[in-house]
């Protein structure tokens, strides 16, 4: 399996050095979770991958021709477009309107929003908006999906719902996902690989690999893992 690699990454903002001679590999078609204290540079790493922030130096290997979807902390929906229109907004204009509509329809069904297809975002709850953002990310024919704490503002029940919805989508279409969070439960429920980042300048403290398909936060193995991660994060 071809891996995505970042080598010798340097990045600093003003006086703060975020990355210094930093290396990381991501497996393709895998959900990689990055856990770390806030302000350590997780979001900056995603922004460098999505090319919205430039590194000071470093090699990004395997990223060049990759197409990227991004799920942000906030839903970032266009207020003047309905659920369907928001999804098809990112679709390529070489597709006919009919094709775009049917793709949008399919993904709104997959995130269980088909009843709200013609609603404007102002009429949707926070969880519903974030589901639209997830549908938008999957409907876009990307190789990599970047996620920057998209569940942060939601309550536990909604979080679980969204995680389920996300896993369902991902099972059908296993894209490379890089998921940044500071919530251990989210990482345990979603991740295949879990990276624990230190404070800036970032080092990878440890990498966990979870192979189980069925996830339960109450299973003994998971509780044990959770404790181990806790210790790492101090």
């Amino acid at each position: 399996m071809m891996n995505l690699q970042i080598k010798k990454l340097y990045k600093s903002f003003d006086d703060i050095i975020l990355f210094k001679d930093f290396d990381i590999d991501f497996s393709e078609h895998t959900i990689s979770c990055i856990l770390g204290p806030s302000g350590c540079g997780k979001t900056t790493l995603l922004n460098m991958i999505s090319n919205t922030t430039q590194p000071d130096s470093g090699n990004f290997m395997g990223f060049n021709d990759k197409i990227i979807s991004y799920i942000f902390q906030e839903p970032r929906l266009l207020p003047w477009k309905t659920v369907l229109e928001n999804i098809s907004f990112v679709l390529d204009d070489s597709l006919s309107k009919k094709e775009k509509d049917s793709i949008a329809l399919k993904y709104s069904q997959l995130v269980e929003l088909e009843k709200f297809n013609n609603y404007y975002p102002s009429k949707l709850s926070g969880g519903m908006k974030q589901r639209v953002a997830i549908a938008r990310a999957f409907s876009y024919p990307s190789d990599i999906i970047l996620m920057d704490e998209p569940l942060k503002a939601l309550d536990l029940r909604l979080k679980m719902n969204l995680i389920k919805a996300f896993r369902r989508l991902w099972q059908m279409d296993k894209r490379t996902v890089i998921f940044v969070t500071h919530d251990i439960d989210e990482a345990l429920l979603l991740g295949n690989d879990i990276y624990i980042f230190s404070k800036a300048p970032v080092e990878i403290k440890r990498k966990f690999v979870i192979t189980e398909k069925e996830r339960s936060l109450h299973a003994p193995s998971f509780l044990k893992l959770k404790n181990e991660i806790w210790e790492q994060m101090d």
Partner: peptide, 8 residues
């Protein structure tokens, strides 16, 4: 920024 990332 969102639109730019999605190459709109």
């Amino acid at each position: 920024e969102m639109a730019n990332i999605y190459r709109v």
